[in-house]
Amino acid sequence: MDVVINGERKQITPGVTLLELLNELELDPRAVVVEHNRKIVRRVGLADVTVQDGDAVELVHFVGGG
């Protein structure tokens, strides 16, 4: 199944939740903010959202800036 993560097309296991996706990517859910198809998904809700084919996921965090 294909999804677009941070602008890159990636193959992921069908049926995974956002939380499982973060685990697959070795990302700490406390350290990233997740946007799923343009909608922010709160940390507590990450296990409730299943990623579908063609979804767009953005994973952001804080970097240096002025």
Partner: peptide, 16 residues
Amino acid sequence: VAVRRVNLDRTKESSV
């Protein structure tokens, strides 16, 4: 701080 995409290859070092 700025908000940017996580670098999916090297996540540990990039967050401020």
